[in-house]
Amino acid sequence: MTSSGYVLEYHLVNYRRTWRGSVLSSLVLPLLTVLGFGLGVGAYVNGGVDGVAYLDWIVPGLIASTAVQTALGEATWPVLSYFEWNKMYFAQASAPLRVTDILGGHLAFMAFRVLTAVAAFLLIAAAFGTLHSPWALAVPPLAVLAGLAVAAPVTAYSAFVTTDSYLAILFRFAVLPMSLFSGVFFPVESLPVALQWVAYALPLWHAVDLSRAATLGLDPGSGALFQVLYLLLWCVGGWLLASWRFRARLVV
């Protein structure tokens, strides 16, 4: 695994140039959302949701959503660029690295981005007094799992398309609807049944549900285990797809 460590190192060095922008998008945006939605809209939600204050209820959802967004940001344009624009993957492939090192190193970097973003968000959440259980410590690993669950298949997608119009399409037709209807802002139970099942099928809802149980200290029941396994399934499936695509592009 040391070789994928070198790849991770490359991404970290690269990140030193661009981290400021990502602080804005992965820290300031969530903070604004907490203020605007949690506090602003929350003030109009009488009685909260399921007896929980709206701010407390929405924060764990926003954390899960941020994890997924951060992972996606790295799994889309950068991947396309490394294949199509600056061709970094090809440069890496001409070094003694295997396809799994290149892919693994980049996914490890995505996990790193998710971890730092979520850690920062948890500190903000704590400052607002919205963490009600020590189980909140389970949120970072959970967020990494959720991040990779979307990042791996989307990396495969980005390795498949050749123009960034298709990335814009992905965000508008898949990511945005998923973010808006996965129980981050309102309970999925109020959706029509068919749409509820769509939400259950996508990874974000499980991440939201688990992270909500963790920060509020609710008993997630034995279903939690299946939710974790389901997210793992997305990771493994995505990894297989992505390594298939990477191999097709890099080993010719």
């Binding site: 809209v41 109009y44 939600v45 709206y54 808006l180 209807f181 802002f185 309102f186």
Partner: peptide
């Protein structure tokens, strides 16, 4: 349109 349904209708049900 998605925002309208999510926030206007979804969250709107919580607000009235």
């Amino acid at each position: 349109v998605l925002y309208l349904f999510s926030i206007g209708v979804g969250v709107g049900a919580l607000i009235g």
